[in-house]
Amino acid sequence: MERSLAVDSTTSEKYYRIASISIAFYDYIITLPAEWRFYRSQPSIFRVSLACVLFILIRYVSALVMILSNYGYFATAFTQQTCQHFYLATPAFKVMQAMISQVILGVRTFNIARRDRRIGIALLLLYFIAISVEWFTDLYHRIPVVVDGNCTPVDSGKNLSAWLYYLAVMLYDLVMLTVSTMHLLRYNPLSNRVGRLVRVLMYDGIGYFIVLSAVNLLNLILYHTTNAETQSAGASLGYAVTWIMSQQILINIREMSEPDPRRFETVIVARPTHSSALKNVVSGLRSQFESKSHSKNSKNTDPEFPPTSPHNGHPDDVELDLHVCVERPVKVDYGYEDLSSWDKPTVK
């Protein structure tokens, strides 16, 4: 009976690992165009944005941890001595992947919170506490186990601690989701494009938490057993999901921040009787369609159109080092009563 259960658990772990490899490889192939667009959007090879750096790190550190984990499991030539030098590689890169994913969530939350200094300090302290707990719980009492030539790290302590790693990750994700969602609900976007960006940020955060928490909960349950054969059954699936969900956040933000020249917005403006009123209308249009990043880079010297205040302007820079520039072409139709007193307007 015990032998039958051991065979079933081994077979289940193989299915989990093969499924995770297939999912990760498929996602890698379909996101190659997005990766190329990330590289093309950088000013130069020496001026790479934070979002691009995080995208590269989460993509290839995740690939490396999956290769190490599954090589140790499927290999058949390990001895106790060679496993002794290899078995900590997978847990170490596992924590590195989690650190990168948590940086993505932390920077994203910090930007959504309008880069508030107090919130930033709190998030930074929470990050260091979380990764300290994760390093300790993931490496404490680990021993190498060689079964049929494969090398697997197993939690050998009387009081199992590896499951606490997943609990720490879930708590960190919950705090990030709560803070970011509360601030997103306060936004009052002045354009449809920014409104869509806010919705994407909110749905990405909720989707990330639900999917990743489900996998972490599975691993928490599996690691909370004393059966060494089933402890790491869902680990590879966790690597794949963390990889996919983290990089998808960056891809969605980058694509939403790009202007789409195919979209036009028609604005009907009544022709005013005084030139000062017309300037007020144009000022309103400029404040709606100019991004914060543009106002920071270009100094406005026109007294009629003062720069938008960072406290009163619309929240466009709610992304990971990607400044949203709302630059949709606008068709302006002038309506006025006395056609004879004005030249014929031109539509651009």
Rank of each mutant, 00 (worst) to 15 (best):
D302N: 11
F289V: 13
Q248M: 02
G205I: 08
S298T: 15
I221T: 15
N216P: 00
R196A: 10
M202R: 09
F264I: 11
D302A: 12
R271M: 06
V269Y: 06
M245G: 03
R286N: 12
V282C: 02
L220D: 08
L212D: 00
L201M: 12
G207M: 03
V267A: 04
P303F: 14
T301S: 12
R196I: 10
W243R: 02
E229Q: 01
S276P: 00
D204W: 02
L250R: 00
Q247G: 00
L250A: 00
R286A: 10
E229F: 11
V282H: 04
Y203S: 07
L220Y: 08
I206A: 07
T230S: 13
M202A: 10
G238T: 10
K296C: 05
S291G: 15
S287G: 11
L201W: 06
F289N: 04
Y203L: 08
S213R: 08
L278M: 00
F264A: 07
P306T: 14
V267Y: 09
L201K: 10
M202L: 13
T301H: 13
A277C: 10
H294G: 11
T273L: 02
M245L: 07
S298P: 04
I210C: 14
V211H: 01
Y208R: 03
R199N: 11
L237R: 03
V267S: 03
L218E: 06
L197G: 03
R193Q: 08
P261F: 07
A228I: 14
A270M: 11
K279T: 05
N252F: 00
K292G: 14
Q288E: 09
A240D: 00
S232V: 09
S295R: 04
T266L: 01
T242Y: 03
A277P: 01
E255G: 02
M245I: 05
Q248V: 08
T230H: 05
F289C: 08
E290N: 14
L250H: 00
T266S: 05
I221V: 15
A235M: 07
A214M: 12
N280T: 11
R263S: 06
L285Q: 12
E290C: 02
R193F: 13
M245T: 05
K292A: 14
R199P: 02
V198E: 04
R271D: 12
V267C: 03
A270D: 06
N297M: 14
G195N: 14
N252P: 04
L197Q: 10
H274A: 06
R254S: 00
F264K: 13
P259F: 06
A228D: 12
I210V: 15
L190W: 11
N216H: 13
P303L: 14
T225V: 05
M202G: 04
L222N: 09
D260H: 09
A233I: 12
P307C: 12
P310D: 14
L222P: 00
N300T: 13
S191C: 08
